[in-house]
């Protein structure tokens, strides 16, 4: 798989390709789960969860003293679910709107995480900065043996998470669709709305944790939200939206990585930048196409109605 690709693009090394593959896996896994966040107007919860996993990771580290993935995954998933729960509880009890409730929750938890990391700093170098923007470039240096092939550890984990995501989504497709569209009706059918929501939050948290090691906690938000939000601009149907989001996620990861390689700068940062450019560009393109279609139908010029 790697060798023919190397022949096609001889200026890339095998390490480059593995890094790129890892970025694509992270982007697709996050993008698919993120579609549901976008549809449920929970994009900012993705942002909140990705910040808030920090104390979970730091806590797991302080407790176990190692940088093993499993304890960190567990700790971060628990905190991620707690963020979702706390945000909605605060919204209800503090009578603040959902955005503000999330803002309170994730900044508090993130601050707690930074302080815990300063506590841990005595024992090992956990750089809060790296948590924010990740170290995609170091992915190929940490490999595991998988069926006789040396695979980056991050790629193996991300592949597993992606597989779980896909299976869960196939199993719960109806339930996800019904609860996202009309929660009251879904509940009357006997669908456990709360359980579906909790499962989605757990999936977001798990994806975030596994992806954040390579791309960082803030940039993971772009991977969660941008593919779904961009795809939604182009289609009004759910299944095409999911496919389109997958394609956009892969393309952003590849283009972002190649541009970053060319400019010798942060790959994760570039992928997030390209995601944003793709989103804003799509808004522009969709608006222009819509205006052209309208004006050719009715003979009116572009933007004939005054902007609100």
């Amino acid at each position: 798989m790697i060798d023919p690709a190397l022949e096609l693009a001889p200026w890339l090394t095998a390490d480059d390709l593995w890094t790129m593959a890892t970025a694509v896996l992270a982007s697709v896994a996050c993008g698919l789960v993120g579609c549901w966040l976008v549809l449920r107007r929970l994009s900012l919860l993705g942002d909140a969860i990705s910040h808030a996993v920090l104390p979970g990771i730091a806590g797991a580290f302080l407790l176990t003293g190692t940088r093993d993935v499993l304890p960190m995954l567990l700790g971060a998933t628990v905190i991620g679910i707690a963020t979702a729960f706390l945000s909605s509880a605060l919204g209800r009890w503090g009578r603040v709107d959902r955005d503000a409730a999330m803002g309170v929750t994730f900044t508090s938890l993130f601050a707690l995480g930074v302080v815990m990391m300063s506590l841990a700093a005595r024992q090992v170098d956990l750089d809060p900065g790296c948590v924010l923007y990740g170290l995609l470039e170091f992915v190929p240096f940490d490999t595991v043996d998988l069926l006789g092939v040396r695979v980056p550890r991050a790629a193996a984990w991300l592949g597993a998470v992606l597989a779980v995501d896909v299976v869960l989504m196939l199993a719960l497709f109806k339930e996800l669709r019904a609860t996202s569209f009309d929660a009251a009706h879904a509940a009357s059918l006997g669908i456990r709305v709360g359980v579906v929501h909790l499962g989605l939050m757990a999936a977001v948290a798990a994806n975030t944790v596994v992806a954040f090691e390579s791309v960082g906690s803030i940039l993971v938000v772009a991977m969660l939200v941008a593919p779904g939000a961009t795809a939604r601009l182009w289609t009004d149907r759910l299944v095409p939206m999911l496919w389109l989001a997958t394609a956009i996620a892969s393309a952003t990861a590849i283009v972002g990585y190649l541009v970053a390689l060319e400019l010798n700068t942060s790959a994760a940062g570039m992928i997030a930048t390209i995601s944003m450019v793709g989103y804003v560009g799509s808004v522009g393109a969709v608006v222009t196409i819509g205006a052209t279609r309208r004006s050719s139908q009715s003979g009116r010029p572009f933007f004939s109605e005054p902007l609100p």
Partner: peptide, 24 residues
């Protein structure tokens, strides 16, 4: 203003995208 895009998605993408640009 221009599109039916969701405001929360726009905010999240702006947060992450601009930060990514800053890292770059």
């Amino acid at each position: 203003r221009l599109s039916k895009a969701r405001e929360d998605a726009t905010t999240a993408i702006a947060i992450s995208g601009f930060f990514g640009l800053g890292i770059v």
